[in-house]
Design a protein around this nucleic acid. Structure first.
Lengths: 108, 108
DNA sequence: TTCGTTGTTCGTGAAACATCGAATAAGTCG
DNA sequence: CGACTTATTCGATGTTTCACGAACAACGAA
């Protein structure tokens, strides 16, 4: 946990990776929550999966460039990289229903 | 090859599956070509992969609901299910750059 | 320093994917 | 029928992904 967390630069954000990251309903829901609330402490996410599994999903989201993770003491604050995604792939967040207040976590 | 090919109904099209289908650059390029040209005979697609691999990709695209395959004699004509995708996920095709005349096949 | 909290990493399976070449099936044309 | 064309399916292989529990690391507070 010492080394800084990897985040791709804006221009390195790959559509392949982003689409893959968003092809999972939990990851999409995390993105949706971040969109709604701006940011969030990891621990305040609640899904019916193991901690390590959630950690994995958050890593996929981070490494794909969808969100940013800031280390703050023992907690991590995650944030949607809205500007970066919007710039690289305009309309994507809307299209994948991340900006929808809706039910979420459905395999729509 | 006798049984009819599976195509999901419009309401059965899953965002999970569609995003996964479109997370591959070749599959996205096929979608782009179909967008540009309306439809295409499978054999007129040219990618540096084995025929069986392409066949697999086309199956993923078909089963996810992104495209339709019509059997015509020994050939198959594939078509983008534009209306269905647009209805279910407005803006998605634009956002994933399927509607971009551009370079394509880049891991943008 | 010791404890509790927060998250990540590790080790490990199970499942899904991508890829290929060879075999197969269906249709068309001689 | 037989050869050819088109495309899928099969079988094999290797990779990646997802999932879990256990162990570990970092920090803050007692």
């Amino acid at each position: 946990m010492r080394a800084e967390l990897f985040h791709p630069d804006r221009d390195e954000i790959s559509l392949d990776r982003v689409l893959h990251a968003l092809s999972d309903p939990i990851r999409r829901d995390v993105a949706r929550v971040l969109h709604e609330e701006g940011s969030r402490v990891c621990g305040q996410l609640d899904y019916p999966i193991a901690k390590s599994t959630l950690s994995h999903h958050l890593k996929v989201l981070r490494e794909s460039g969808v969100m940013h993770t800031e280390v703050r003491g023992t907690t991590r604050v995650i944030t949607l990289r809205r500007d970066d995604i919007d710039t690289r792939f305009p309309g994507l967040l809307d299209a994948v229903q991340v900006t929808t207040p809706a039910p979420a976590l459905t395999d729509a």
